[in-house]
Design a protein around this nucleic acid. Structure first.
Length: 656
RNA sequence: GCCGGGUUAGCUGAGUUGGUUCAAGCGACUGAUUCGUAAUCAGUAGUAGGUGGGUUCGAGUCCCAUACCCGGCUCCA
């Protein structure tokens, strides 16, 4: 019988009989690989390990350590979980069980809810099924057969899914013991390959993600190919919790909430106010240089303004209800743009005035639904680093790109490296509904934005259907310590609203033209940005942002007078300084300062008092020895002025 | 808004099946100590079971309502 040639990644060739499976080849190479391999890549496509090879091919045997292998392992574990759930709760219907970053979930239709005890039971059952070592067998079937198969099992959600699959596509079912699931695969070849898993949480989730549909019960879990991987991941989750801005925000006394004030309405404590102030300084300096002008607008406005802007039709449910003032509806403002439009309209404008850039740190109020609130990241009172740029079509690309570059400039200052730029486009099917009905303008402005980004060499991903109702936008996505995704900054094109406000400028030819408007908030809101920064730095703020920049720590009361002089000099130099006058030992004072994540500690004892020096100790660096204040103060002022991102190793190490 | 869980002192956090005055640690305060790079010792106090009802001889514990928080879903101008 002729053999087939199987080329391995090291270019070595195995001659095997036709119908040999990748698993058999792995078995032949070594017992370790035989056990660890989870999926095969044949001629570049992922396939099951028990798929018989018929022709010459290249073969890569992927373990659960590889990206593709881990994905397969996650997916197979979702099936294993569904299998276990069906064993324990035969009445549940299964729906979908995809992989997500670092894990998987499965949604079940279940009359009841899964308790923590249920999770333990399910996990134990999974271990049992894993130990039993059932083969996982793929079966390709026709659409009709699949519908019959899953109808007979009472799996109505699966039937619904199959009905929406193109009947010409291959439909596959995977069976392990008495459990069969619809899946395109590939999967690991045997349940015994799934070992190091953990069920993490439960929640409700709407079928197909639509809140009009039935709410299903979701279970989240994760799996790793090695015990150590799972352990490290669980440890990482614990570490991330330590950086959670809600925990650090309280510990570092940055902000708080109060039941009597109301949900989503943060109270900024003095330390938080300092951080806000520094951010505003940065923004004002940056925007002044970029040609922005500051404006200020009121918190209350007549409803008619929001009718004109379209916000009352598009976002009324997210606005605080109207209050009646002398028979007229007034609203607290949910955004600043209509007011800025009014400022544009307040004077006749010429093409010579363009681009006109109006900036404001306006406080807005949005009625976020109660379940959306999340620490500082999602609040009901928020202050935006907002501005609106009015420009002529020919100026658009430059203006838009400049805004994007402003983001990048900020990100550099903060050392933000992990983010995604997302270009959100309209969905033609939602024109006139979710999006203003201007099909040509949509396409044109989307093209402009895309070109501006490409010209600027800025990487981005395109997301259809996510645009604002008045135009395409760029969102900058970041992740909180616990992995939640957030829009940190946003930059939107608005080709519709200026017209509704009858905004115009006199062009070179003497005719009136409508400007294009760019909405932009590179620092997002104070609330979200600071929430993010707390996590980004793990509370270890760079010197310029730190609420307490320097702590003066006298070794004993004997040198208190000198310590007070030191504090005075720093204070006069404009540095935020604390003096620890307590009767503690120096070790305790240092510990206290370290726990408060103070960047610079100045230890003064009799030696320093005699020599008119201070001993510098910096966070993460330890004792740096004595230095004269005349030397130290200018250095610190430089570090502050340059907004240097230093002394944050620990936060780096913790970043996932 | 929806599904689930939770709420005990400033923080963390115990508390059997409802049974006299609700731990403890940290923090705070007072006193002593005057000390050299992540915790000195002793003592004191504390407005502590979210709020409102109910069951009961008796509720932190059981029931109902409500507020707020947490995990998700959905949403995000």
């Amino acid at each position: 019988m002729s053999k087939i040639q199987v080329t391995l990644p090291d270019q070595s060739i195995k001659l095997v009989p036709p119908a040999t499976t990748p698993q058999e080849i792995a078995d032949n190479i070594g017992s370790r690989l035989a056990q660890d391999v989870v999926v095969a890549s044949v001629n570049g496509s992922l396939v099951d390990l028990n798929l018989p090879l018929q022709d010459d091919c290249t073969l890569e045997l992927l373990t659960g350590d590889t990206l593709e292998g881990h994905e397969v392992l996650l997916h197979s574990t979702a099936h294993l979980m569904a299998h276990a759930v069906k064993c324990l709760f035969p009445d549940v219907k299964i729906s979908i069980g995809p992989t997500i970053e670092n894990g998987f979930y499965y949604d079940f239709d279940f009359d009841g809810t899964f308790t923590d005890e249920d999770l333990v039971k399910i996990e134990n059952k999974m271990k049992e099924i894993s130990k039993a070592g059932h083969d996982i067998i793929r079966q390709e079937i026709s659409s009709n057969d699949a519908i019959k198969l899953f109808s007979d099992m009472g799996e109505s959600y699966k039937v619904e899914i199959i009905e929406q699959i193109d009947p010409d596509d291959t439909i596959a079912a995977y069976t392990q013991d008495d459990f069969t699931d619809l899946c395109r695969g590939p999967h690991v070849s045997n349940t015994s390959k799934i070992k190091y898993f953990k069920l993490l949480s439960t929640s409700g989730a709407y079928w197909r993600g639509d809140e009009k549909n039935k709410m299903l019960q979701r279970i989240y879990g994760t799996v790793f190919s090695k015990k150590d991987g799972l352990k490290r991941y669980l440890h990482m989750l614990e570490e991330a919790k330590k950086r959670d801005h809600r925990k650090l925000g309280r510990e570092l006394e940055i902000y708080t909430f109060d039941n009597e004030v109301g949900p989503g309405l943060p109270l900024w404590l003095p330390n938080g106010a300092i951080i806000i102030d520094e951010l505003e300084q940065l923004a004002k300096e940056t925007e002044r240089l970029a040609g922005y002008q500051q404006v200020r607008t009121p918190h209350l406005t007549k409803g008619s303004l929001y009718e004109r802007s379209g916000h009352l039709t598009h976002y009324k449910e997210f606005m605080y209800p109207a209050m009646d003032v002398d028979g007229t509806d007034y609203y607290v403002k949910p955004m600043n743009c209509p007011h800025h439009h009014k400022i544009f309209a307040a004077s006749p404008r010429s093409y010579r005035d363009m681009p006109l850039r109006l900036a404001e740190y306006g406080t807005c109020y949005r009625y976020e639904r109660s379940g959306q609130l999340f620490g500082l990241m999602r609040v009901r009172s928020l202050q935006m680093n907002d501005a609106h740029i009015y420009c002529r079509p020919g100026q658009f690309k430059d203006e838009f790109l400049n805004v994007c570059q402003m983001y990048l400039q900020y990100f550099k200052i903060f050392g933000i490296e992990k983010y995604t730029m997302r270009l959100s486009l309209h969905n033609p099917e939602d024109l006139g509904n979710k999006f203003v009905n201007e099909p040509e303008l949509w396409l044109e402005t989307e093209k402009w934005v895309r070109e501006a980004l490409q010209d600027g060499g800025i990487e981005f991903v395109e997301v259809p259907g996510e645009a604002a109702f008045y135009g395409p936008k760029i969102d900058v996505q970041v992740w909180s310590a616990i992995g939640k995704e957030f829009t940190l900054a946003t930059n939107q094109v608005d080709f519709a609203i200026p017209e509704r406000f009858d905004l115009n400028y006199i062009d070179e030819d003497g005719s009136g033209k409508t400007p294009i408007c760019i909405h932009r908030a590179p620092l997002g809101t104070h609330e979200r940005f600071i929430g993010f920064l707390i996590e980004h730095f793990g509370g270890n703020f760079p010197l310029w942002l730190a609420p307490v920049q320097v702590a003066v720590l006298p070794v004993s009361d004997k040198v208190l007078a000198y310590a007070q002089q030191v504090k005075g000099s720093l204070f006069e130099a404009g540095i935020r300084v604390n003096l620890n006058e307590r009767a503690d030992k120096i070790g305790a004072k240092i510990r206290h300062a370290e726990l408060n994540k103070v960047n610079v500690m100045l230890i003064v004892g009799t030696k320093e008092a005699e020599n008119r020096t201070v001993s510098v100790r910096r966070r993460f660096e330890g004792d740096l020895g004595p230095v004269r204040l005349e030397t130290l103060i200018p250095e610190l002022k430089d570090e502050i002025k340059n907004r240097s991102v230093t002394h944050r190793q620990e936060a780096d190490a913790e970043t996932q």
